[in-house]
Design a protein around this nucleic acid. Sequence first.
DNA 1: GCCGTTTTCGGCCCGACTGTTTTCAGTCG
Length: 580
Amino acid sequence: MATTNAGVARILQELADLMKLEEGSPQSFRVRAYEKAVAAVRELTTDVAEMSQSQLVAVGGIGASTAKKILEFVNTGSIERVEKLREKYPPEFVELTRIPGVGPKTAVLMRAHLGVENVEHLKAAVAANKVRELPGMGAKSEDKIARAIERLGLHGKDRRTPIQQAMPLARELVASIEALPEVRRATYCGSLRRFRDTIGDIDIVAASTEPEPVMEAFLALPVVSEVIGRGDTKSSVLTAAGLQIDLRVVAPSEFGAATLYFTGSKQHNIELRQRAIDRGWTLNEYALADAETDEVISSRTEKSIYEALGLRYIAAELREGTGEIEAAATKALPRLVEVGDIKGDLHVHSTWSGDGRSSLDEMVATAAARGLEYIAITEHAENLAINGLSRDEVAAEAKELDRLRDAHPELTILHGSELNIGPDGGLDYDNDLLMAFDWCVASVHSHFDLPQAQQTDRLLAAIAHPAVNVIGHPTGRMIGRRPGIEFDLDAVLDAAADTGTALEINCHLDRLDLPAEMLRHARERRDLTFVISTDSHHIREYDHLQWGVANSRRGWVDRRQVANTWPRDRFLEWARLTRA
DNA sequence: GCCGTTTTCGGCCCGACTGTTTTCAGTCG
């Protein structure tokens, strides 16, 4: 597999994370320099593997030292500095810093004083009240850590990987395998294909009549750090980060049955097999076949198997055994959203926001070039330190938007804002300014630890405000790093329905917020409106749309309830009416 | 480690908040 930009970005990010521990500070200039280099590589439009030292150094954010490391990685598949640091800080130790409240200093401190090397050790130390005795720590910090471990579901060994890490890797692996001449088709399956927000391991199924060279190529991939098992049709490996990848090679005629079987879920498969048995058939990873004669009824595609069983095709995101088979049998499946249905993006930042990375001109021009009919520019608001816009800046940006409207007459540009919902439900600016915007997203960006009743109240207050069109990333969760705020979901859904306030489905892979579980909870409600938004901070992030769409599908969201699938006139009319 | 000079060192965004503390670590976007 050729070195990809994503692969380079990944190892540089690992280097940055390891340097945080080494330097004892996430703010170290060296760490920040590496993180800038990561961002630079992610945003490159050319192939890093093809670039020379001088070309790399010419990229802003990459200097001589990082360029050298990139070349080392491209040429050898590893970086010596990273290897050394991995020995000193193994993955299970690094994992400690994923716990909110535990940074590099605390992790190193706990290791030095208490011998804490992993989450299991930390849990024991917390249980023995040892952590509160450390300098700079107290009972509250210890409790916070204990709760964080509990709520994040970290248990050390059997940890799950956030989809944000697994998905890009799986895409890359599938592309490499599919590029092999012996491979007809390949796809990832399992919980990743079902679009769960965390995954246990990556399952890949490839169709080929020559499994041997496929297996060999797989085992030789640079991402493989350890081979657990190898056979003719199935091999398992581990990455350096401890993520397991399984590859299964099947005959092309069995591809549908194999992907169906390995995509699961277990419950979905059980129900499908029961349906087969009821018809005198059997279903396994090779085929749907007659139980008596073994004659194959269907195996080549998933669709043909579903159809043979009297079912509409069931999208992978729905296969959780939560009523999808019954719905497919009675033609009651939701009309799921496709990427092509989306006509507008209603949560977009530019460099006017402190954390934006593409200019306003670029963000608008790219939206127009992608064929969007409407877009809302929603910079951060004044109460968000550093990143937010002052009132003067809001006025100044409004003038820029007028200019851009003239330059892009085919695109409707809404002047919006991403407001901050304060701990008491208060918003930024004043009412006159709020009502002067065309579109307001209101989001929680702070005070994640308030009690449930207070969290519910602040969301209800924001929903009730006439200027607010949509609640942005409603839970505020960061998958694998921070649980969402706790609130009364039904109370929030009721209020959103009453006021016509939409709920965002945020497309960032580390957010996917609202989570699919909450969307499923709301799936019978026809009185709710959703908006699928990329929350882009860079032109490349418009591509994240696919993730929000997939999450909506997993949540059984019907496309008729997604406001940004509506044509421009209908959307604008609705947006205007809800601001009153 | 990167950058950009007033060109080989010195600055690198910064403010609020919490929990722990008399100076700092972690977190937020």
